[in-house]
Design a protein around this nucleic acid. Structure first.
Lengths: 199, 199
DNA sequence: GTTTTGCTGTACCTATGGTATAGTAGATGC
DNA sequence: GCATCTACTATACCATAGGTACAGCAAAAC
């Protein structure tokens, strides 16, 4: 990982989150990074490789964030349901605090430009969502052992719903121009979890 | 509305839903429509105008669909909560029946390629989501009059959640490769509505 | 019978992704 | 102290895509 490579990734990420993948040209990136085209293609053999590197970095950061939030939540309460509710609140606060709203999820972006990306990018994307599914499903299973759910629901779908609500919230906030919408949607999900498990 | 114009829209829609906006070239469209480039630009002054026409058409169809589903639901039950629950089930069934899953939502696509589209496209997008918010919020207000909600929630956010869950579900289904995910997410939302309002 | 509509056909400009290749300053290895 | 490797620069070039410009033409509308 050289300094130049990291700089390219940073500039590309900013551009892509603001304008989309296609709208962010390589020449634009090289200009801002003050390197030549040759320099860019030295680090990334094509634009797909850039997307892949960016996605990997993004997923890692997001995983770290979930680790931090939910380990903190488990510190604050021994009860699995309470820990989940605290974690969701922390997540909502975090989304709320990002100035200008959540920058948008690279995972979703890559979904919506499907044929543009190669199989590797889609695979990375898939792994990320399955990882999150797994993480939350385990937590909900633990909760369900102590708190029998009030409605017959599939816990995998419930786990997926959190990812979905965040993604959907981002789309909402972008479309309606309300940066805080994403955080409020997470709180709606929290309300559902509360009603579903709380006695 | 000429026959050629409609044919362009149909071909473009199919391409965009399958591959994304940028990945669908004008030349590809004109080739399939068996017209020349001049013919294309006679109908749409640029690619943005194509996006706008497509979005308008899409929103109108989606509105019609919601009208059909929920008026049918209201036929089946006089109770506002029951009608909502029936409507959500019908919506889920509809999403489930689309062969190969939901084709993806043009509204979301246009969100994620933001700077690429002009203000008109974003405005159309915004109006659509606000229209759906309004529609569902009114329904939830009527429900709340008879069934006091079990948790203190903002009904606007609840209305937005349905749009969000559909959008998020589409992303999920595309990313994980599970066409039915979108329908199951709508059923999760239905479960929330049930727990929130049912006595 | 003239005008408008809905195109065709040709030619051309620009931006962008991508390829190729020669060269080079500085760090690293032996 | 020489060679090799790393991390680039510089130049030149190709194909594709969006877009412009404009002349022409057949059929429908007035």
């Amino acid at each position: 990982m050289t300094e130049t490579r990291t700089r390219i990734l940073d500039i590309a990420e900013r551009g892509i989150l603001a304008k989309g993948f296609e709208a962010t040209s390589i020449e634009e990136i090289t200009a801002e990074a003050e390197i030549t085209k040759g320099g860019f293609f030295y680090h990334f053999h094509d634009k797909n490789a850039l997307a892949l590197a960016l996605l990997d970095r993004y997923i890692e950061a997001e995983d770290q964030l979930f680790d931090d939030i939910f380990s903190r939540a488990e510190d604050l309460s021994d009860d699995p349901l309470q820990a989940m509710l605290i974690g969701l609140k922390l997540l909502a606060e975090l989304l709320d605090d990002i100035p200008g709203g959540h920058p948008g999820c690279l995972v979703a972006t890559s979904c919506y430009q499907s044929r543009l990306f190669n199989t590797q990018v889609h695979e990375a994307n898939r792994r990320a969502l399955l990882g999150w599914r797994n993480r939350f499903e385990t937590m909900f299973q633990t909760i369900a052992e102590t708190y029998p759910p009030k409605d017959k629901v599939n816990l995998t779908d419930l786990a997926d719903m959190l990812s979905g609500v965040v993604e959907g919230g981002i789309i909402l906030s972008k479309a309606v121009g309300d940066p805080k919408a994403s955080a409020r949607q997470v709180l709606m999900f929290r309300s559902y979890v509360k009603l579903l498990f709380q006695r």
